[in-house]
Amino acid sequence: MALLNFKKRDAVENGPVNPTVEAFLQGYSIEVMPRTAEKVEDFRALLPEGTRVYIAHIEGTPIEDMVKTAKRISDEGYPVMPHFPARIIKDPATLENWISMYQGEAGVDQALLLAGGVANPHGDFDSSMQLLESGLFDKAGFKRLHVAGHPEGNKDIDPDGSTKNVDDALRWKQKFSETTDAEMALATQFAFEAKPIIEWADSLKEAGIDIPVHIGIAGPAKLQTLIKFAIACGVGPSLKVLQKRAMDVSKLLLPYEPTDVITELANHKAANPDFNITNVHFFPLGGIKTNANWAINNGGASAKPVNS
């Protein structure tokens, strides 16, 4: 059985590596913000070669800080994928300027397009679909465009608790993926339970949506921190996994780690090679170093840093 035939690490004290998890973590990505990136002295001491680094653009962050962070990480050898939150972009001229700045100063050719967490748009754009429709990313020759996925729905988009608008948007994005030269993928909100993730991913295939899924996973963090972020980000039913853990006094003070959910997804992927979840995307809610070290300890060769 694969789960019992673990490979030994070079550093024996780190314990054995689950080869199924190691394979599943191959090509994982991670998310930073300018202020969290500043705390990392050198990403090459933490991340494998070629790791895609998303840069989250929070309302109020100057574009200059975003571009500076993109350039720094790109100069260290990593492909950078900045967020383009539609609702904080004033107009097409602003969007074109941002694209130009990222390309000219940091060599960026990929982006995550999303509505953003702002209730009222700052200008012309309200959704990632409008950003795609602008044609500006294709005009600039972007090679990869990611859009948001929601395994547990999104109450901002479907306040009634249904998934109608989310599903309609996915069908629109599927059609767009068939016309653009850019590679597309769904980068999802994080969840804490494998079963609903698997059911959601399978439902996409049944609906004819074949855009690859990069599944969002919350990295290791204090339980209280995760619950706070999960509620703020609208995480759905899988939040009960954290709430149940919070009721267990023996686990309350222990940090949460994504070992269980990743192992279940990895086992499913190994048993179903055509499973449409192709990559793991980490939200390092407990810190970039903490998340990277968890990956190093569990991912074997898939997570070996450049400087190791």
Rank of each mutant, 00 (worst) to 15 (best):
G50C: 08
A37E: 12
P16L: 08
D274G: 04
L242Y: 08
A56Y: 03
E38R: 14
D42Q: 07
I231C: 08
T180E: 04
K143N: 14
P305Y: 02
G50S: 15
Y256A: 05
L145T: 02
Q110T: 06
K143M: 04
S29T: 10
E257D: 10
D181F: 08
K205C: 05
P212D: 07
V53C: 13
T69I: 08
G219E: 00
Q130N: 10
V306D: 05
Q130F: 09
F84L: 15
Q174I: 00
A187L: 12
D210C: 02
K39L: 13
A207E: 14
K90M: 11
G117M: 01
V306P: 03
Q103T: 09
F192A: 00
M129R: 14
K164M: 08
E183S: 13
A86G: 00
A246S: 15
E178I: 00
D126T: 15
V261M: 12
P237D: 14
R52G: 03
D124C: 11
D65P: 05
L95H: 00
A191S: 15
R52K: 14
T290N: 13
S238R: 06
A295W: 04
D126C: 11
Q26G: 02
E38L: 13
I215T: 02
V118S: 00
P305M: 06
A169G: 06
G161K: 00
F229Q: 02
N154P: 01
A93E: 12
Q243N: 15
M129Y: 10
K289I: 09
E49A: 14
L114E: 00
F142L: 08
N5D: 14
A270K: 07
S128Y: 02
H122E: 09
R245M: 13
F229Y: 15
M1H: 11
T20N: 04
T163C: 10
A56W: 03
A45E: 13
N307Q: 13
R245P: 01
E199N: 11
